[in-house]
Design a protein around this nucleic acid. Sequence first.
DNA 1: CAAAACATGAACAGATCAGTTAACTTCATC
DNA 2: GATGAAGTTAACTGATCTGTTCATGTTTTG
Lengths: 184, 184
Amino acid sequence: MSQNKRAELIRRALLLFYRNGFHATGMDLVAKETGVSKTSIYKHFRTKDELILAVLRLRDENFRNRLFRRMEELADTPKAQLLAMFDALEEWFLEDGFKGCMFIKASAEFQEQDNAINAQAYAHKRMLVDHFEDLAAKAGADDPHALARQLLLLKEGAIVIAAMSHSESAAQEAKSVARLLLPV
Amino acid sequence: MSQNKRAELIRRALLLFYRNGFHATGMDLVAKETGVSKTSIYKHFRTKDELILAVLRLRDENFRNRLFRRMEELADTPKAQLLAMFDALEEWFLEDGFKGCMFIKASAEFQEQDNAINAQAYAHKRMLVDHFEDLAAKAGADDPHALARQLLLLKEGAIVIAAMSHSESAAQEAKSVARLLLPV
DNA sequence: CAAAACATGAACAGATCAGTTAACTTCATC
DNA sequence: GATGAAGTTAACTGATCTGTTCATGTTTTG
């Protein structure tokens, strides 16, 4: 399989898992919707879980790239960028096909301790925190790590409520809290 | 089926769904672990989804009762009770068998729009907000509804991160933010 | 005691699940 | 043109899924 076809397979599988859930999406459907035969899929991924891990790797890359880039487009100081994160989230919530955070859902469906999918989902959140901490330090926060963790809580809460309520206001509610946390 | 047996069935099914997930828990397992034959289960619940809805009703009752009671035990002014919510959450996070919020997980597995399970999960969150708003008004908040929504975001974020990281510190991190939001 | 109501296990649909096997095609490289 | 790697379809495991049927208890109630 060419690199292109492999990437395309993962990209389409991502959409299926994101829309329908992981357990609810069978490998027959993945084969049908990606146009790649099940035999070929299993030649490149030993199990469904390995495919899911590849999907989450792609999602992590895409999501962080997009979020961080959008934060930089919307603002030019570290402090303003941290606030702009919530505007970027709001844009995401408003998109067609927004269905919450893929990592929260993966963690919810594979919650057994030491599960690789669960671990990878948390790794994504840690990478987000690291970036927030970086910006928080540049913004002159007293305790950049603590601030980054607090912003993460607000972000996750906003995503969960936005996904459940099909409303985007959670982003601005979270932003109003974040304003109080950032250094003046 | 007596009211007792029915209640016991729902109670045990709740544990199974909470621990293993909804799609990943089959009705054969529910029958085996509850001691109620599948025939009887389907005489009282037309579908698995109806059983899940009954389970979520029980969870909603139990969770709100327990949380609100614990908040009252831990503090005696409305403001202090809102802060004590995060201590109550921390206690929950530390319990054996803590596996995150059942409603977030239900919503993640049944995310199709207009799904009854999804709707009931969000209804639970709205009832929480209503109670928070009540306390916020009594605490003299300028905008009780806005404050209640902000506290909800912090609570959901803390639960999600606590469940993913198997660490309880999220509760106190959320509490430190909540302190800034409450009126002096 | 008898009738009605309910519960049971076990087998059975019919679909779908993850994953495998086998025979056939495509295609670049020697 | 032969070889071999890599792709394909399609049928096939054997298990599990939700939900039903049925024949046989067991309670409850009149």
